[in-house]
Design a protein around this nucleic acid. Structure first.
Lengths: 251, 251
DNA sequence: TCACTATAGCTATAACCTCTAACCAAAACT
DNA sequence: AGTTTTGGTTAGAGGTTATAGCTATAGTGA
């Protein structure tokens, strides 16, 4: 007998259940795309699916449970988008690859802004993310780490390195994450720190853009993103010229 | 007769009204500090004030109106905090002043995280901010502009400058904002662009920290902030050494 | 094939919420 | 003193999440 894979349920009941769960999440995404996260209503979803109210509680324990599923799927999808961008840019220079990843991050967010806010926006104070969420977030940032590991240490970041070193040494999951995305690194700390920098810079720009905070300002966020991530690439020595050893180090 | 100042109402009814509005906002802030923005309930506020439900609608048209008042007050308070930080650091170097402002921004956010999220967090999709909000946000960033105007253009930011130039030339309020905080600038565009960069970097770091996204990561966000804003200072030529003309330009 | 059990869906209901309507009493103004 | 403005009340419409309890049916095992 083949091993029971939990992803492809075998019994008809499980299959029906899984399919209806998918439909519920689909309807939920449609609601969120329309009216934001606060427009997500268990009742309204049930109505669109032709069933009434409390029936959905057989499929998701509560609203937060449904939200968690949507967030989990979202991370999966975002990670996939970043991965394909990494594949597409595999033969380019490290600097170009980093920029391609950053733009893929932004493109994914812009294509489905409310879904991006589901992942990166302000979580409800009552909601606490399950532990797996951290792994999913790391999956999104993995390709960034894989590129940034080709950089060199950045003197100004020394204080950050010390803190990051303590972090990676104290949490095994982080070391494991490094091992999967940057197995050949002798010292992953500079790349880890650079990943944090990339994350916070991208988050700053993209979340402001998606929230509409740049409304009325004449700039293109793509320009901003290219500038910020390009500066980061320069700082860690992923310089645009072909011979990275000949560049002068820049901050 | 003295001119009627709308801030200090004269008739007893107006004074009572203003005082009760303050109490309502106070109670609202307490609720938000406890359970986040979604815990803000008109009903619950009324209960704590010893009056029942719909009475509050005589003071705020609806929930969004109250929220707007809280946000407006919040911007006021944040701007005040940044201003005092600017005063305190008035005799330091431009680089130190910029860093002092950034840390004041973060400190204000950390002292009252939910209130910060009220300003910088994901706004509800239904909520649209009144036009004054933009001015309030500019008031917060004004001291940053005043410092950054002492920098010099950053070659890599040229594409951003072009967009920012079109922005400041098309919107008079922006030019006015520049005039109040950087009246002596011959070309405000580089400082404006640097302000946007400072904003997005600070927002990225501080919002991630306040949202708890850095939970479980071993770094201190103050280190991250100092690194990022310090790098920005270096990029725009606010170098740490006393003689700014002798420094080598860095990215 | 038949009996049993697990489960998908229903309705009813509790406990919240926002916000409107209608009314009352007291304060303020003329 | 009479009139108007205004603060506060209760009642209620319409929405939400979530639980309890029931029914009918689909799947399962003997």
């Amino acid at each position: 007998m083949p091993p029971t894979t939990p992803d492809t349920p075998r019994t008809p009941r499980q299959r029906y259940r899984a399919q209806l769960q998918q439909e519920i999440k689909q309807a939920a995404l449609a609601q969120i795309a329309e009216g934001g996260i606060e427009a997500l209503s268990i009742n309204a979803i049930a109505k669109t699916l032709g069933m009434s109210g409390p029936a959905l509680y057989k499929y998701f324990r509560n609203r937060d449970d449904l939200l968690t599923a949507l967030i989990s799927d979202g991370y999966e999808d975002a990670a996939e988008a970043i991965r394909t961008a990494a594949h597409r840019a595999a033969d380019r220079s490290p600097r170009d690859r980093l920029l391609a990843l950053a733009h893929a991050y932004r493109d994914w967010a812009l294509a489905q802004p409310h879904r991006y806010l589901l992942l990166a926006g302000t979580p409800a104070a009552t909601y606490e993310a399950p532990a797996r969420t951290t792994d999913s977030a790391r999956a999104v940032m993995g390709p960034f780490l894989a590129v940034l590991v080709e950089g060199t240490p950045w003197p100004a970041a020394e204080p950050l390195y010390a803190e990051v070193r303590a972090w990676v040494e104290s949490i095994p999951a982080v070391a494991e994450w490094v091992a999967t995305h940057a197995p050949a690194a002798d010292d992953p700390v500079p790349a880890l720190a650079a990943s944090v920098l990339a994350w916070s810079r991208m988050h700053g720009i993209v979340s402001l853009e998606v929230q509409g905070s740049f409304q009325g300002m004449g700039h293109d966020s793509a320009t901003l993103l290219a500038l910020e991530i390009g500066a980061l690439a320069d700082a860690v020595g992923l310089s645009p010229d072909a011979c990275p050893e000949s560049r002068a180090r820049r901050l």
